[in-house]
Amino acid sequence: MRRRRQETLWIHKWSRPLIAVIATVGLIGTGYLTATRLSNASAVCGSGCGKVLSSDWATVLGQPLTLFGAMSYFAMLVLAIAPLLVNPEKDKELRTKLEGITWPLLFVGATGMMVFSGFLMYVLATDIRAVCPYCIGSAALTVTMFLLTLFGRRWDDRGQLLFSGSIIAMVALVGTLGIYAVPGGPLSPGTQAAVVDEPGVGPPVTTPSGEAEALLAQHLTDIDAKMYGAYWCPHCHDQKQLFGRTAYQDIPYVECAPDGKASQTALCQSVPEITGFPTWEVNGQFLSGSQSLQALAEASGYDGPTNFVNTDG
């Protein structure tokens, strides 16, 4: 009996072009975010993207994470289209060879990118706590590419492929954790120790700081403004959260609690306008309660960028 010729499924025919299109979309998105990060501009997708781009997770080895994302998408694009550029009628052997070489590389790349994106989705939900359409979209793209590499051709042994994929996934996850555990990274021992409550200081500030927050904090210091507060005061903590974990260290903060770290209780007691915490003294004006960054910018005459990544709403 003759063996029936295997029918070519549509997904086998179109998997490479689809991967190329997806990689192109991802390359455009990550390229835009890289340019946004390098130029200190605001991404057009709300404050969520700003929080992500200004967080500690957005930098890898001193470079924007999105730059590595763009490079990964570009590599997937090249691997996907390389065999398609060879005319099978003129050089069928070369095209077949390129397909044999690039398919495993596409699978490795898609698996690694999917695992990395999955980890970042976890970070987005548990640490950054922001909605970033670009990040979510990129994660969806990597999952789609993985499925296309898995079902986009007839693998000789799909079980062995999945076993190899699980090993690749573990290596990618360990590598991801290792990258972020370098000194100064968000998973480094020093960083983790820094977020532990310190006596007389209060809970740690966990939000990211953008360029605008840092410049406003420095401006308030330059004009000799003051924020009177107490380490145990929840509204004072809310105020610090608006500046973020980097910029809040530069605000002109005066600790009024007697048992607070570097307490200046006598100074606080000498200012009758302080009726609660926090109280801001800005250009001779006293502002009671936690203030929005925009309000502090207006009261202090700050004229720098106001694309704050943290809001009180």
Rank of each mutant, 00 (worst) to 15 (best):
E213G: 10
A212F: 09
D224S: 15
G190T: 13
D222V: 09
R158N: 12
Q218L: 14
T149C: 13
F107S: 07
R154Q: 11
G165K: 00
T176L: 10
K97T: 15
G137M: 01
Y134Q: 01
G159K: 07
V131L: 08
L124I: 02
A169M: 03
M227Q: 11
Y122K: 06
D157C: 04
I167G: 11
N87T: 04
M113L: 05
I223P: 13
N87R: 05
P104D: 09
F116E: 01
V171D: 03
G229F: 00
G137V: 00
V205Q: 05
H219R: 12
T96F: 10
E211N: 14
K92S: 14
D197A: 15
D222L: 11
T207V: 09
G210W: 00
N87W: 02
A181Q: 11
L141R: 04
A140G: 10
T96G: 15
L148Q: 07
P203R: 14
A225H: 04
G165L: 03
P189Y: 09
A125P: 01
L84E: 10
L177K: 13
L148Y: 04
G185K: 01
L177W: 11
W155L: 12
Y228C: 00
P199W: 01
D156Q: 09
Q160W: 10
F107T: 07
G185I: 03
T191F: 03
P189S: 13
S117D: 05
G190K: 11
S209A: 15
P204W: 05
A110W: 00
T144K: 02
L161Q: 11
G229T: 01
A181L: 10
V123T: 00
M113F: 02
L150S: 09
D222G: 14
M170P: 06
E89V: 07
T191W: 02
S138L: 03
A110F: 02
A212T: 13
Y228L: 01
G200E: 04
G118W: 01
R95T: 12
L124N: 03
P203L: 13
I223R: 11
V123H: 00
L84Y: 09
P133R: 00
A140Q: 05
P83I: 12
A217R: 05
T96C: 12
L173W: 05
V115D: 02
K90S: 13
F163I: 14
S166H: 03
M170K: 09
Y122G: 06
Y122I: 08
L177H: 13
L105E: 12
M121L: 11
L177F: 14
Y228N: 01
M227L: 14
L105C: 13
I128A: 05
G184W: 00
L187K: 05
A225N: 08
G200W: 03
R129F: 01
M121N: 08
